[in-house]
Amino acid sequence: MKGILEEANAIGPQITAWRRDLHQIPELGLETPETSAYILQELKKMGAEDIKEKIGGWGVAALVKGTLPGKILAIRADCDGLPIVEETGLPFASKNGRMHACGHDAHTAMALGAAKLLIAHKNELAGTVKFIFQPGEENVKGAKAMIDDGVMENPAPDALLGLHTGCLWKEAGPGEIGVRYGALMAAVDRFQITFRGKGGHGATPHLAVDPVTMASAAVMELQTIISRELSPLDPAVLTIGRIAGGTTFNVIAEECVIEGTVRTLSPETRDFMEKRIRALASRTAEGMRGEAVV
């Protein structure tokens, strides 16, 4: 094991270089042609086998086949960025108006590093390791697109590993890996609620039905699902990230839209959250003479 760790440290500068190259070319959603081309180029250089491209769009997969018999392990790395303008001023900063602000450039670089290290030791490797490079993590479409296109077949993995950089947790420091029994990474769901009322003048609210008031009430009420309806032993997170309604200061809008995300750690809680969000949004709107479309 000491030898492997020393080799991993030795290719650290290469992993850093990969990450910085990728950091300069962030792409969004399922449209990652430049990123995929870079991954393909590096996989071919290091001698990966059975390289497949354009899986579910621009996804990439490759194999490292050990010479000894064994099971099939998959290692998955996401590779898309975010629609954020980078202002770090770093010499390798993105200049295309998008940014790897969530660490997917690092995930991809780490997976390339693991592939390079395993290729160097495939004569000692029992089984096969399948590397999966997935676009579309941020829009929650990439995994399904690649699965529908057969990435989990030929060969089918016995197990799959994924990770996220430590920017989400402070408990694990540099050089440390955090693990736990049970679910660790939450399911990510996005929701949008459109509140509809009746527009009018700000001076005569009694003649209108105000969707901004409905949305404002719902933003607060939705949090009671977390604080008063879920067991503290089965937690979830609900965040409203966007609220938009109206066009000027003295006119009551006809619509107001809120968008948010729900994170859950079990299928049962996920289903419960969807049911309660729909019910609470509708009842809040109805109580204020409006309607809600979830």
Score class of each variant (00 low, 15 high):
A218W: 06
E291K: 04
G70P: 15
R278S: 00
T204R: 13
G199E: 06
S216C: 13
K54Y: 04
K71R: 09
V294E: 00
H121L: 08
A186M: 05
R19N: 08
A145P: 01
R19M: 13
Q134F: 05
E171D: 14
G29F: 10
A114W: 12
M146D: 09
G162D: 03
D21V: 12
M214S: 05
G175R: 02
I226R: 02
A126N: 08
M220F: 12
I25Q: 01
L28Y: 11
L117Y: 08
R98L: 14
I25K: 03
F133H: 07
A156K: 14
K141N: 11
G175W: 07
H100T: 01
L161I: 09
N154S: 08
A115Y: 07
A183M: 05
V64C: 04
L43G: 11
L82N: 11
L82M: 13
A109T: 10
I4D: 01
P91C: 11
L163M: 08
E86D: 02
T247E: 15
I258E: 02
E87M: 02
L117C: 04
F272C: 11
F272K: 13
I193A: 07
Y38D: 14
R196C: 12
F195I: 08
E34D: 15
A37D: 15
T224D: 09
E229C: 02
A186T: 06
